[in-house]
């Protein structure tokens, strides 16, 4: 394997999709307030730049920073906007950007750019987008259940769900 080491660069399809998702996250996430608020927009642009940097450098830490900046941007909008639905979409797309970006880096390490990967990358991105759609639905449902505030019961259920998930993931 030493003689035929592939380039470690992230695979192209997923990298491109990750940047697209990042841009989409900013566009969708900040749409309720437009360009009137500078801070969320700036955070979003920085997020996309960090994401791009992470893909150019094949560095997960830059990717993660970009993703968190995108999530931060949509969170700011969620506070300010009267309609939080677009910011749910923005956050979901930020997660899709991370999924595709990390997938590109990982696949680049294991298979490389010269390998045959495009179909598999599209498959991964497709699943990710489907999950995002379900996620936005779940967020919307949470809002619908508690229009005036968050009941303690819903909070407790959410907290319990989080604990169960983390136990599942990290053990």
């Amino acid at each position: 394997m030493t003689a035929n080491r592939p380039a470690l660069a992230p695979t192209r399809t997923s990298a491109l999709l990750a940047v697209l998702a990042g841009v989409g996250s900013v566009v969708v996430g900040t749409s309720p307030i437009g360009t009137s608020a500078v801070a969320p927009l700036a955070a979003g642009v920085v997020g996309v730049l960090l994401l791009t940097q992470g893909l150019l450098q094949a560095a997960r830490s830059w990717l993660a920073a970009g993703t968190l900046a995108l999530v931060g941007a949509t969170t700011m909008v969620a506070f300010a906007a009267s309609d939080p639905l677009p910011s749910l979409g923005g956050a979901a797309l930020a997660f899709v950007a991370w999924d595709c970006g990390e997938y590109a880096v990982g696949l680049g390490e294991q298979v490389g750019r010269r390998g045959a990967t495009a179909r598999q990358e599209l498959r991964n991105a497709g699943t990710s987008v489907a999950v995002a759609a379900v996620a936005v639905g779940a967020g919307w449902a949470t809002l619908a259940v508690a229009p005036g505030g968050v009941p303690v019961v819903a909070l407790a259920v959410l907290a319990a769900g989080l604990v169960v998930l983390f136990v599942l993931l990290w053990t």
Binding site: T74, A135, L158
Partner: peptide
């Protein structure tokens, strides 16, 4: 509430 909706997306 919007933050909990975002948590639901993450979940």
């Amino acid at each position: 509430p919007a933050l909990f909706a975002l948590v639901a997306v993450g979940v």
